[in-house]
Write a protein that binds this DNA or RNA. Structure first.
Length: 543
RNA sequence: GCGCCAGUAGCUCAAUGGAUAGAGCACCAGCCUUCUAAGCUGUAGGUUAGAGGUUCGAGUCCUCUCUGGCGUACCA
């Protein structure tokens, strides 16, 4: 529908030059009475042309050439909207479109041939993934899916650091637990060490395997290595449970081994965007328009996180991506501008970088907030959550809300009333259609697109209209990086279907109508299934 | 102090600068001898935190104030 509209308006602007000078918008009105599409061009032009907007609208309409079989009516409404009413006989063709490509309907090729890198999760192997990581993981994977649906080839990437202070503390935490197990020692365990049960599990494993042979081993040896190995295995299992497949695990350490860090430092020096002061190396961020200069090499000689972060991003550019997406929690919102500024100063096209900052997840246990800290181990792991409510609910819950808003996750509610989760409403629509198709098939009814014009009730037309904006919705959601829109769209479509279900029957209707309705619900099922695929949520045949 | 995000119905949230701000949950009243009642219909619920401004038009953009979250390291 929309492409036809764009076409006829473009043709019109050859006659009315002023249409080319205005950035008008084609929108879907929220009331049926306002047509299928609406444009606001006349109102925007009013001032420029110093004319009454309704008068301009009339002139535009007079100059539009269109096929009456496609558009049945164009009218001026309100302050100067031009509303387009499509002919239901044309709208109904959306069913043919959907049915012609059941597996992939909704896929677009707007960005075909482009490569994207989406970095997400990026948790260091110091403990199991938390619920906070869950939002990151689901947002990242869903955005990756959306980008794939609009044509990108996407690499899902996980960046981690298995060196540094955190990891030393991790190794030492394991060793302390190991010694405590051997000597049945209840000696005080340092408060700033990793407190979680999983540390004891690792220590126990080592004790069973090696007995007391590790007493003299360095904490950074087998203790750290085993901890990293086990924790990483856990992380991958958890992601697997959410059906997330990471393609590239990028080790920060490789940046040092490859000499990327040294190269970067000399480049900074060469370009004079770094300087030394009080024994540390600073980056001239203030000159780049940021708040203040920041340290990249401490006076101890150790780099701060910024240096490898910048080096890491240069590799993303060097690897030839057209789009570089970073998924960060809001606690990182102050860090990425420094990275971007440095890259820009070095001449990289930072327009390619899109940083998605999602707000925090607050876990509520009834009325009580649960503070999350890997170190303190008073967190609920993502694994536990998945076990409680299942991967579909977890994925849907994390994606149904705009990433810009806080997510209140009431565990009691999620556990107790999980069957009231909106995801079931959506899945139920899909399962219901499966059931309808099964029963109608048994009755000898077939799908037919021969008499789609019989679909005329309001609930049927509303569904057709909704189906026909599916692709627009995917494109818009993807380029805006707003995965929740897909969830909202599907919920609305499911709602329209449930309404139809209660108003229109298939079995019992005249054969031609029944078969047209089968085509309709099949199309709905395809769109719901494909939409759920983007969200990584299953579409059950039965509930 | 400064920066980012949020504040919309009792609760959780939608709304691409457009027309009468919408859903779900909860409450109340209805709808199953017919394709899945995890559903549908109806009632009720709003000064879009507050005050200014820009605009033909503001929940949306700008300024200020209030509330909450996250930052503001030679931690990551």
């Amino acid at each position: 529908m929309k492409s036809y509209l764009v076409e006829i308006i473009n043709n019109t602007s050859d006659k009315l030059e002023y249409l080319k000078e205005v950035d008008y918008k084609i929108s879907v009105p929220n009331q049926n009475a306002h047509g299928d599409y609406s444009i606001n061009a006349a109102m925007l032009l009013s001032k420029k042309l110093n004319r009454n907007p309704r008068e301009i609208a009339q002139e535009i309409i007079n100059n539009i050439e269109y096929d009456i079989n496609i558009i049945s009516k164009i009218e001026i409404a309100g302050p100067g909207f031009i509303n387009f009413f499509f002919n239901p006989l044309f709208v109904v063709r959306i069913i043919n479109d959907v049915l012609s490509d059941p597996m992939d309907y909704g896929k677009l090729d707007n960005f075909k041939g482009k490569k994207a890198n989406v970095e997400f999760v990026s948790a260091n192997p110091t403990g199991p993934l938390t619920v906070g990581h869950g939002r990151n993981a689901v947002v990242g994977d869903t955005i990756s899916n959306m980008l794939e649906w609009i044509g990108y080839e996407v690499d899902r990437e996980f960046y981690f650091n298995n060196a540094g202070r955190q990891m030393r503390v991790l190794g030492d935490s394991v060793k302390k637990r190991y010694l405590a197990l051997l000597y049945d020692d209840t000696e005080d365990f340092p408060e700033d060490y990793y407190q979680g049960e999983y540390i004891i599990d690792i220590a126990e494993e080592l004790k069973n395997e090696f007995g007391d042979k590790l007493i003299e081993e360095s904490p950074e040896g087998i203790f750290k290595q085993r901890a990293e190995k086990n924790i990483f295995a856990d992380i991958e299992n958890t992601l697997d449970a959410l059906k997330i497949k990471i393609k590239i695990f990028f080790n920060e350490n490789s940046l040092y081994e490859d000499g990327k860090i040294d190269d970067l430092l000399s480049k900074f020096k060469e370009m004079d965007i770094s300087y030394e002061n009080e024994g540390a190396v600073w980056l001239r961020l203030k000159e780049m328009g940021n708040e203040q200069d920041k340290v990249i090499i401490k006076s101890t000689g150790e780099p701060t996180y910024r240096l490898p972060d910048i080096a890491y991003h240069t590799t993303k550019f060097d690897r030839g991506y057209d789009l570089i997406v970073d998924i960060f929690g809001s606690d990182h919102n102050a860090t990425y501008p420094d990275v971007v500024a440095a890259l820009k100063a070095m001449g990289y096209d930072t327009e390619k970088i899109k940083v998605v900052i999602y707000q925090f997840v607050t876990i509520m246990e009834g009325n009580e907030k649960v503070k999350m800290s890997t170190r303190k181990a008073n967190f609920i792991t993502l694994d536990e959550l998945i076990n409680e409510v299942g991967p579909d609910v977890v994925r849907y819950f994390f994606i149904m809300q705009n990433t810009t808003t806080h997510l209140n996750f009431d565990l009691e509610l999620a556990k107790k009333h999980s069957d009231e989760n909106p995801v079931f409403y959506l899945q139920y629509a899909h399962a219901r259609i499966s059931s309808i198709l099964k029963v109608t098939h048994e009755q000898g009814l077939k799908l037919s697109t021969q008499n789609l014009e019989l679909l005329v009730t309001e609930s049927e037309l509303n569904i057709l209209k909704k189906l026909s904006i599916f692709k627009e919705e995917i494109l818009y959601s993807a380029i805006q990086f707003e995965p929740h829109r897909i969830a909202v769209y599907l919920l609305e479509l499911a709602g329209l279907f449930h309404k139809f279900y209660n108003e229109c029957r298939i079995i019992g209707s005249e054969n031609k109508l029944a078969e047209a309705r089968i085509a309709l619900v099949t199309a709905v099922q395809i769109v719901i299934r494909n939409g759920l695929r983007i969200l990584g949520v299953t579409a059950p045949e039965k509930m």
